[in-house]
């Protein structure tokens, strides 16, 4: 076989493509229908021992997103008892300082009674057309207030205003955060509890 390859290089090349071609059918016949459009099927097709058809048929199928997957940032809010939305953000400004392309704008709220700055953002804008999805804002926010989203299906017909996200688009509940990044959320919650303990 080895010499054959040396002597008839093109033949051996064609053999490889032929092998690929038949393999797709053989694998499909052996693995059956379960291979497609099932979670296990998708998982199996992205393992290192996969053979045959490699395609993930988006949109019918979707590759599972790893927990660390990042697209755009969003702001986490805790749901209060009466349905109020308590933003975790304290307008400390670290995320806007660390952001490499400088696409975060924060307007810190002032306390109407005292006129002093109060720890809330009155406005919070992210220009998603500049954001480079680097994840620094989420990484360095000391209050776990800004996190990276998993939603990548964002294409649309316009930009302009709609691509500068304000508070209304950025705010997402903590339950959503826990659903996309369970391990991270649990770890952070534990760390916060740990911190709160000595004080209590």
């Amino acid at each position: 076989m080895k010499n054959f390859g040396k002597r008839f290089g093109v033949m051996s090349s064609l053999g490889v493509t032929m092998g690929h071609f038949f393999n797709t059918y053989i694998v499909d016949l052996v693995k059956g229908k379960k291979r497609y459009r099932t979670t296990e099927g998708i998982e199996a097709r992205r393992q290192s021992d996969t053979e045959g058809i490699f395609t993930i048929q988006y949109p019918e199928e979707q590759l599972p997103l790893p927990e660390e997957f990042r697209v755009l940032p969003f702001l986490v809010y805790d749901e209060g008892e009466n349905g109020e939305k308590n933003l975790r953000c304290t307008a400390c400004g670290i995320c806007s300082k660390v952001c490499p392309p400088q696409c975060i704008w924060i307007y810190r709220a002032t306390d109407p009674a005292t006129g002093k700055p109060s720890p809330h953002p009155a406005e919070f804008h992210i220009d998603i057309d500049i954001c480079m999805n680097c994840g620094f804002c989420a990484e360095y926010c000391p209050f776990d207030a800004i996190k990276m989203d998993h939603d990548f299906e964002l294409s649309g017909y316009t930009r302009g205003e709609s691509h500068v996200f304000g508070l209304d688009t950025l705010m997402k509940p903590v339950s959503y955060y826990e659903s996309i990044r369970p391990a991270n959320a649990a770890r952070e919650a534990a760390a916060r509890a740990e911190k709160a303990k000595p004080k209590a």
Partner: peptide, 9 residues
């Protein structure tokens, strides 16, 4: 400096 604390896009 225009990003915080009085940042308007």
């Amino acid at each position: 400096k225009s990003r915080w604390p009085e940042g308007k896009p």
